[in-house]
Nucleic acid binder design. Structure first.
Lengths: 129, 129
DNA sequence: TTGCTCCTCACGTCACGTGAGGTGGC
DNA sequence: TTGCTCCTCACGTCACGTGAGGTGGC
């Protein structure tokens, strides 16, 4: 299993063992102790490979960057959620204010009494001009 | 100036020159070409020093981490803004729905003048049905 | 047997830090 | 003069990658 993972990630098998010793990757183990790499493991290896090969990071840097990227992903999801919520709230507020009345209590022309909007709406038909 | 900055950051002056060559820091220059380090520059140097000394990052890693941290700070500010907005929206919506007035000024029945809600509330007892 | 796996040890290479050496202006 | 600055060059050290060597199970 380590040979296929190494080939997929374009790395030396020994390098994978080294990364595991450093805590960068944690493949499952078969009952016999053979490392079993998942698809997610291989993708993680490829990301590490890109960081070290293309950007020149050392393993300490890879660890930090992976942590920070996880934090970034978390925050981006939170921003997306908050934006969706805000959109929803704005829609509710607009609905609340636009078509219907924006106040609950309004004066009636003749009597000058204050009544609930809902009551007033009920009387509008009778008192309408 | 480089000697004091190096002492404040607990680094070798030559190291500061190296960091500048790598684009990690950009001190101002005097007309004569002498490097001038600001307080912010020194703090940045100390952060770099911590990353390299305590965490063992190489300079490529430091660069990445600084970039990611800037992005994180940006996102955190955005989250704070969005949360403040959401709180405000929820408050408006609650006020809109709660049965109280959503406006401070309402027309008086007889004169048609606009008064503060609080003033009007004071008159309600007299005019109430 | 071959071809995989596991492990440890050791070497080559490269990045980084730092010292040396030589220059020039207050 | 001394003590700073600028620069380039070179060396020591260390981390990393990888190969060797020896083991064991399908």
């Amino acid at each position: 299993m380590i040979s296929v993972a190494a080939e997929l990630a374009e790395m030396h098998p020994q390098t994978l063992r080294m990364y595991e010793a450093r805590g960068l990757i944690e493949p499952k183990r078969s009952p016999k102790g053979t490392r079993l790499y998942s698809q997610a493991d291989v993708e993680r290896l490829r990301r590490i490979q890109r960081m070290t090969a293309e950007l020149g990071l050392n393993l300490a840097g890879v660890e930090q960057v992976l942590d920070l990227e996880a934090e970034l992903a978390r925050l981006r999801r939170r921003v997306a959620t908050l934006e969706a919520n805000a959109k929803q709230l704005r829609a509710e507020l607009a609905a609340e204010r636009s078509g219907s009345f924006s106040v609950d209590l309004i004066p009636l022309p003749g009597g000058g009494a204050l009544v609930r909007r809902s009551d007033h709406l009920g009387q509008m038909g009778r008192h309408a001009t």
